[in-house]
Write a protein that binds this DNA or RNA. Sequence first.
RNA 1: GCGGAUGUGGUGAAAUUGGUAGACACGCCAGACUUAGGAUCUGGUGCCGAGAGGUGUGCGGGUUCGAGUCCCUCCAUCCGCACCA
Length: 939
Amino acid sequence: MEYNFNAIEQKWRKFWADNKTYKVFEHPEKEKFYVLDMFPYPSGAGLHVGHPLGYIASDVYARYKRLKGFNVLHPMGYDSFGLPAEQYAIQTGQHPEKTTKENIARYREQLDKIGFSFDWDREVRTSSPEYYKWTQWIFNELFDSWYNTTTDQAEPIAALIALFEQEGNATVTAVHDHPEVFTAADWNTYSELKKEEVLQNYRLTYLADSWVNWCPALGTVLANDEVINSVSERGGHPVEQKLMRQWSMRIKAYAERLLTGLNELEWTDSIKDMQRNWIGKSKGASVFFSLSQKNASQPSIEVFTTRPDTIFGVSFLVLAPEHPLVDEITTPEFAEAVAEYKRVASLKSERDRQSDVKNITGQLTGAKVIHPFTGAEVDIWIADYVLATYGTGAVMAVPCGDQRDWDFATHFSIPITNIFQDKDISEAAYTEKDAVIANSDFLNGLEAKAAIEKAIEVIEQKGIGKGKTNYRLRDAVFSRQRYWGEPFPVYYQGGIPKTIAVEHLPVILPEVEKYLPTEDGQPPLGNATVWAWDTVSNTVVENSRIDNQTIFPLELNTMPGWAGSSWYFLRYTDPTNASEFASKAAVDYWKNVDLYIGGSEHATGHLLYARFWTKFLFDRGYIPFEEPFQKMINQGMILGRSSFVYRNSEGQYISKGKLAGNEIPIHVDISLVDNDQLDIEGFKNWRSDYANAEFILEDNGTYICGSEVEKMSKSKFNVQTPDELVEKFGADTLRCYEMFLGPIEQAKPWDTKGINGVSNFLRKLWRLFNIDENGIAQLDSGEPTKDNLKTLHKTIKKVTDDLERYSFNTCVSNFMICVNELTEQKCNNKYILDQVVIMLSPYAPHIAEELWQRSGNEAGTVTTALFPVFNEEYLVESSIEYPVSFNGKMRFKIALAATLSVKEVEQAVLTSSEAAKYLEGNTPKKVIVVPGKIVNIVL
RNA sequence: GCGGAUGUGGUGAAAUUGGUAGACACGCCAGACUUAGGAUCUGGUGCCGAGAGGUGUGCGGGUUCGAGUCCCUCCAUCCGCACCA
C-alpha cells in the first residue's frame, strides 16, 4: 500500500482537532516547559516558506519535550493591531477589524495545514477587547507606580504621595524629572493640578512634552526608522522635529537592570550586544559651569562628560539647539542668527543630523560661562552635533581629546589647549586614555584612570558637580496618533489625566467615520462622536454630553504596536480570565518562556519592552520572575532562489550555455522552471509579450535558466508558499525539509530541488512497515537483532543529543541513516519500528500517527508515548577499526580487539604488513595511541 | 569607524571535548528493472593525475605527534550601531 500523505494528513488533522489532543492544563505534579514563537502580525500577503521555519522548529521541540514527560505550553496568537490594516482602511474605508479577521483566518488556514501542536484554545489577539482590557490595566499600574532607587524597584504611587505629604521630595530617592525641591508644607498647599504635574515627573508612564518626528501630511508621529532623509518613508512627506505632549514610559528607570539582566539570559551575543549598545551605559561626571550673566533663571549649565580628567582642556561649551536655556542666555546681537540656526536644525530629523557628520555647523550665542578651575570666560555655542536627548543636552568641548570637538574648534578657528604631555594634537585629537595629563593643576602627571577619579573627587568637594552614570536609553514615547491600537484608559478632568478603574475596563475602541486625523489636527479618535467618559455611570457616552462636571473628554491617542506584545506570553497561561490578566496559579506554574523562537529584528524593540514590563510586573508582585524569555533562538531568513531568462538586443531568449555576455537577465516565475530547465510553452503563455518569443537553446534542445539567491518577493517571482508544497509533498515532508536545510539560525536559500530527498526518505520509512492491501503493517513481533538494536540506539543517542542542542538539521540526517540501515537490515521488527516512529513523531507527526496505528497501537497514543531511552550496551563493539596515520596523515585502517592495551595496539600496528610499507625499515620517533580513536606514527 | 556573526565539493551541509575532512541529501555520471514514474534498485562522484601518488576547510603565519576546530595577521560577505560627550 502506497504512502498517501494527503489522505493521512487530513485524517490526523481532524483527529487532533476532534480530540483536542494538544490542549494543556496546569499539572502541578508535572514539570512544565514553555515553548513560544514570536507573535505574528497577520499581514494580507499570507505565509511564505520562510515564515513557518521557526514555528516548525518550536513545534518539533515542543513535541519532543512532551515525549520526554514535560507538560508543555505551546500557544499561538496574533499581534493584530497595527499600521498595515489601518492604511488599508484609509484607502478602502473597510474597518480594520474586518480585514484583520480575514487575514487571521487565512493565517490559521495556512498554519493548520502544517500540523502544529498548538493549543488553539489559548489563542489571543491583541485587538480583542478581552485582551486589551489587561493591556489597559497594565498601563494603569504603570501610571500608579514610581521607581524607588533605594529599594531598586517600582512601588505604588500612593506611598510616594504619603512621603511628599510628610517630608516633601528632598529625601525621596526616585527616578524622576523633577529638579525642584519642595517641602511637605509646599506640597500640601499645591493645587490638585500642580500636584499632578509634579507626580507626572515620577510616574512610570507620564504625559510630557517630548521631541518627536512629526509628519504633518500623515498627521502622525513617526518612529526614527520611518523617516529617511528628512521625509517620511511612506509618501515622501516632510518631517519636522516637534515638541508634543505625549505619553511616555519611564523605561530609563530600568536601564541598569535591563543591562545586568542580560548576563543570565541564553541569547546570542549579537542580540545581547545590541541591547547593551542601545542602553548605552557610560560613567563620568556631571559638572555645572556658572553663567557669567547673572540674570538667567538658572545660575549654571550642567554638562555630562566621561572625561572629567580633561576639564582643563575645555575651550568652549556647546548646547543642543533645543536646549531650554538657549533663548534665555543668547545675547541680543546673536539672537537673530541663533533663531535661524534653530529653525534650520528643527527641519532635520535626528537621523539626518547623525548621517550628516562631515558638515560642521554651529552658532555662537554670545553667552559665556566661567571655568570652575581656571576662572576663564568660555564661549557658549549651539550646534546640532550635540543631541538634546542625551545627557543634559550640553557638552564641555575639549578639542585636544575629542575628535568632534577638535573638528569643531578647527572649523571655527577656536584655540585648542593641549593638556596631554608629549602628544601631538596638530592633526587630530588624542583620544586614547593612556596619555599623561599636563597643564592641569592638581591633575598633572596622572593618567586618565587616576585623573578621572581625582577630578570627580575635587569636583564633588567644590560642589560643582558629581560622579554620574549616564544611559543612552531614552524614555519610550507611548502615544500614537492612530486609530487601530489600544485606547488609553484615560480621561481629562480640567487638564488632569485620570485613569479609569479596572472594573470599568475595557475602554472599547470607538467607531469613527474615517480613519484619518481630524481637520484641526487631532488624531483619528477625534472623529468619534461617542468618546467621552461619564464618571457617574462609568461608561463611554456622546461627546455632546461633556460638561466637565461628571462627563469628560477621553484621550485621543492610541497605544503603539509594542504595547500588546510586551506581555502576551503571560496571557497564554490563562487566556480567558476575565477578572485578572492571568491567575496567580497559572503564572506561578507556567512561569516564563523556556524557549523563545523568532527573528532577530526585534532586538531593541519588542525584546527590550517585554523585558521592561516583565520586570515591572515582578516588582509589583504580580509574577514570580524578572525575565520573560530565558533561552532564545533567532531563526535565519529563508531566501528565495530567483530564476532568469536572458534576452539579447534582437529580442531573442538565450539559454544559459549560449550566452554571449551582453544579454539582459529577466526574472521568470519559478513555477515555470524545473531544475533550471524552462517550461518553454509555459513561458510563452505566461505573458502576452512572450507569446512569440524566439529562443536559442542548448544543444540538447532545452532552455537552461540562470539563478540567483535573493530575498523572497512577489516582484522577483521567487515566492514559494507552504500551501503548494503541502499539496505536492505533504506537510511532514515540508516540516522535515525545512529542518533539513541547515542550522536554524543561519540564513539560507530555499531550493525546492532538495525536497525530493526528504520525500523519498518518508516513503522509504513507509515501506519498512510492509503494509498489506488491507492496510495492516506486517511486522515481526519477535526479538530484534543485534544490528537492529545498534542502529536504534545509535539513533536515539544522536537524536537526543542533537535536539538538546537545537541542531534540528542533523536529526533529520540521522533519521535518514537509521531508515537506510534498517532497510538494509530488512528490519520489520515491531519493537524497533515503534521506537523509531516515536522518535520521528515530532518531525513528521502525521505519518507517525498513521504508522503507529497501522502497527496495531491505539490511535493517537504516539503523542503521549515516552521518548526512547539510550542504552550504551547495544553500542559496545568487540573490535575497533583504528585509523593509522603517519605524521598526521591517515594511511590505512586496521581492525583490532577492543580489549587491547595501548602497548598492544602499538605493537600490533607496527608489526602489521601495511605499516611496513610506510615505515620503509625506519624506526618511528614516536607512536601516539589514543585508545579507541586513532594511532599516529611520527617518522 | 565600532560591535557581532559567517567563510568547508557543482549545491544545502556534517564533523558536539584538537584525533579518519566532506556524514546525510540535492545534482551529476554509468547501469538494472518496467504498470514509463517527480517510482525503485546498484555502482561512482572534493580537486589534479592514466596511475602510483599528490593536494585540499577564505589568505598568510604559529602552537601541536596531530588543526576545519586553538593563537596571531589579513581578506570577503552579512547583520547591527554610528557625532552618545
